[in-house]
Simulated assay, not measured.
Amino acid sequence: MFVKFCLMVLTLATAGAASAQSSAARVVYDSRIQTPEPRLTELERGRVKYLAGLAMEARLWDDADFRASDTCAGQDFAINGVAPGAFTVKGAQQTAYLYMYCYFRPGWSQGLVITQGNQVVAHYVFTNLVSSLYALKDINQNGFTELVLEGGFTAQGGTEGYIEIAELQPQRRLLAQFKYDNQLQPYSDNCGAVETGGIWTSQVIRVTPGKNPQFTAQKIQGKCENERVATLTGALRPLKVQPLPTGWLSAPLR
């Protein structure tokens, strides 16, 4: 009886610890943590570039104000991020590729390709300034992996950053968007505008997973000469986020 009781206590304690760990807040964004450079085979790179070329031939980046297809031949092609996860099928082993096909101002011709084994299962294109990509492990607990797209721009010596959290299933949407326009900007600096005394300001964004994920932000600040060390740390504050449509267009799969 005593042994059985001990085993029951141990089981409950382990289950409780696992539950607490699964619901613990996760870091979504911290400017001090660098996203690893993508590691690719030539086969992967060639497949993504081929799909990007098909999208350009279909003039999917063209609009009334700018015809990217008139001058873009893939001369700036690069894969800016690679992430594993289950993006369109629960439990699947898939890979997401973020690419840029041509560099333009005010936005790059970009796309997102999802593969599963040797099959391309999704391809979307958009105009943006996204420079890196990484995965989040199912923060709304619906069985699908989310993607974080991080970008920004530099003008007059200052840099402004933003991030978007996207999910592809059960519906394609942005779960959250953090940028200057909605007063949730995750990063800014004046490092190129001043010779000395420049500062960077960032927000450490965390999320507690659940059916309705809860986000918090914590302000940190430091000197431009050391982007990894914060000299000021603020208090945690809750964030309100609003799901949005991605605005992406579906593109050829083959």
Rank of each mutant, 00 (worst) to 15 (best):
Q214T: 08
N226L: 02
L249M: 15
P245C: 11
N182A: 03
E227F: 15
W200C: 00
T246Q: 03
P238V: 13
Y187E: 05
L239K: 11
G222I: 01
G158A: 13
R173K: 14
Y162M: 13
R172G: 03
K240S: 07
G197E: 05
A166M: 14
Q156C: 05
I205A: 06
P170C: 06
G197S: 07
D189F: 01
Y180F: 08
Q183H: 11
E160P: 01
T208R: 15
A230S: 14
K179I: 01
Q185T: 03
Q203Y: 11
R206V: 02
V229G: 01
F178D: 00
Y187Q: 03
G192H: 05
E225D: 14
G210S: 14
N226A: 05
E167N: 05
Y162E: 11
Y162R: 07
E195V: 02
T246C: 12
E195K: 03
N212I: 03
L175W: 02
E227G: 04
E164I: 04
K223A: 10
V229T: 07
P209Y: 04
Q185I: 02
P209D: 12
L232P: 04
N226I: 10
I165C: 03
Q221M: 07
K211S: 14
Q221F: 02
Q185C: 02
T233S: 15
A235Q: 14
E160G: 06
Q242V: 12
R172P: 05
R172W: 06
Q203E: 13
P209H: 07
T196Q: 11
Q214F: 07
Q203G: 09
G222V: 05
Q169C: 10
Q177M: 10
D181W: 03
G247L: 13
T154P: 01
F178C: 13
N190F: 01
I199A: 08
F178W: 04
L236W: 11
P245W: 11
T159L: 13
N190A: 01
L174P: 00
P243L: 14
T159P: 08
G197I: 08
I165S: 00
L184S: 12
C191S: 01
P209N: 09
Q203K: 11
L184T: 12
G152V: 02
Y162G: 10
A230E: 15
R228D: 13
G192N: 02
L244Q: 07
R206D: 00
G247W: 11
E160V: 13
Q156L: 09
A235M: 14
C224F: 09
K211R: 15
L232Y: 15
R237I: 11
K223Y: 13
T196R: 10
S250Q: 08
Q221R: 08
P243H: 07
Y162I: 08
T231F: 08
L236P: 02
G152I: 01
K240G: 03
T159C: 10
P245Q: 11
S188E: 11
G198K: 04
L174E: 06
F215E: 06
P245D: 09
S202G: 04
W200F: 12
P170Q: 04
K179E: 12
T201C: 04
P238D: 15
T154H: 02
Q218R: 08
V194D: 00
V241M: 09
T196L: 12
R172Q: 09
G158W: 06
W248Y: 15
A217S: 13
